Each structure stands twice: as C-alpha cells, then as structure tokens.
Amino acid sequence: MTETTKWMAACRVEDAAENGGVCVKSGEEQIALFYFTRRNEWYATQNECPHRKQMALSRGMIGTLTDEPKVACPFHKKNFSLKTGECLNGDECAIKTYPVKVENGTVYIALKSTR
C-alpha cells in the first residue's frame, strides 16, 4: 500500500473566523479549521470530540495552555493540543491533526489516503 497526500483547498483566508474555527467537509469527513490570529498560525483537527462523538470542536474556544495552542471542546471543556492532538487534561484520548498551509490567499489542508 502507498500513502499519498493531497492538499485540499479549504477556504480563502478572509473567509476564516479570526481566533476561532470553522467546519470544512471532505467527503464524509468533517475537519475543524482554526485561524489563531494572535499567533498568526493555522491548525486543522478532526471536528468530532472523542468523548461523546459530537461534531463540535470547530465551535470550541482556542487559546494557549503553558504556551501550547489548544482548543477546548464547547461541551466538555476538555483541552486538546492544536499541534499534536493530545488531550491536555491528562485523558488518554487524542484527536487527529492535519497539516495546513496558506498559498496566494487560499488555505489548504493536507489529506492522506492509502491505496
């Protein structure tokens, strides 16, 4: 099997919520895209919170925890690293993260597939 990476155009920079998230769909997959303007950084994670399987992380509050950029689930207040997906509250659950890049005003998310 071979793993390939495809860069999906998610949105224009000006269409993203500043210091917040939006939900982007790729087929049946929901991805939470975050524009952290205070750090001038972009992040993407799965949109599904692992606790109750709710599609909610794109509506979570972003911030930092000991300088680690994080998102807090709006329902359970669990904090997840936007860089690694690790749960910062000590739970063993984690979320999937995706590489993000910006080119010519368009935000792209890297999607991996196996063939």
Results as ranks from 00 to 15, higher is better:
residue 101 K to F: 05
residue 109 I to M: 08
residue 22 V to S: 12
residue 89 N to G: 10
residue 71 V to G: 03
residue 4 T to D: 12
residue 9 A to M: 12
residue 37 T to N: 05
residue 64 T to M: 06
residue 58 S to D: 08
residue 2 T to R: 13
residue 8 M to D: 02
residue 16 A to Q: 05
residue 62 I to E: 01
residue 37 T to K: 15
residue 5 T to S: 06
residue 86 E to M: 11
residue 84 T to P: 13
residue 26 S to C: 10
residue 47 N to Q: 08
residue 19 N to I: 10
residue 6 K to L: 12
residue 109 I to G: 01
residue 39 R to A: 10
residue 24 V to W: 10
residue 81 S to R: 01
residue 18 E to D: 12
residue 34 F to D: 05
residue 95 I to W: 05
residue 79 N to Q: 13
residue 84 T to I: 10
residue 55 M to V: 00
residue 4 T to G: 06
residue 4 T to Y: 08
residue 36 F to R: 01
residue 3 E to F: 02
residue 97 T to M: 06
residue 26 S to P: 00
residue 53 K to Q: 12
residue 16 A to N: 08
residue 93 C to H: 09
residue 87 C to N: 15
residue 7 W to F: 01
residue 70 K to M: 15
residue 47 N to T: 04
residue 72 A to D: 14
residue 17 A to K: 15
residue 113 S to W: 05
residue 3 E to G: 01
residue 102 V to L: 14
residue 58 S to C: 12
residue 115 R to Q: 14
residue 98 Y to T: 03
residue 40 N to C: 07
residue 69 P to A: 08
residue 30 Q to P: 02
residue 102 V to I: 15
residue 25 K to L: 13
residue 48 E to F: 10
residue 5 T to E: 09
residue 6 K to T: 15
residue 42 W to T: 02
residue 76 H to N: 10
residue 68 E to T: 11
residue 15 D to A: 15
residue 12 R to H: 13
residue 32 A to N: 06
residue 60 G to Y: 12
residue 86 E to S: 07
residue 59 R to F: 07
residue 35 Y to D: 05
residue 17 A to V: 15
residue 3 E to Y: 08
residue 110 A to C: 07
residue 57 L to Y: 02
residue 88 L to K: 06
residue 97 T to S: 04
residue 36 F to D: 11
residue 20 G to W: 10
residue 18 E to Y: 02
residue 23 C to A: 12
residue 61 M to S: 11
residue 91 D to L: 13
residue 73 C to P: 13
residue 52 R to F: 11
residue 4 T to N: 14
residue 28 E to L: 08
residue 114 T to K: 15
residue 35 Y to K: 03
residue 14 E to I: 07
residue 41 E to L: 09
residue 51 H to Q: 08
residue 28 E to F: 00
residue 103 E to V: 03
residue 47 N to A: 04
residue 81 S to K: 04
residue 115 R to W: 06
residue 50 P to I: 06
residue 47 N to F: 04
residue 11 C to K: 13
residue 69 P to F: 03
residue 12 R to L: 12
residue 108 Y to Q: 13
residue 19 N to G: 02
residue 72 A to L: 09
residue 80 F to G: 04
residue 34 F to E: 03
residue 21 G to H: 01
residue 78 K to H: 05
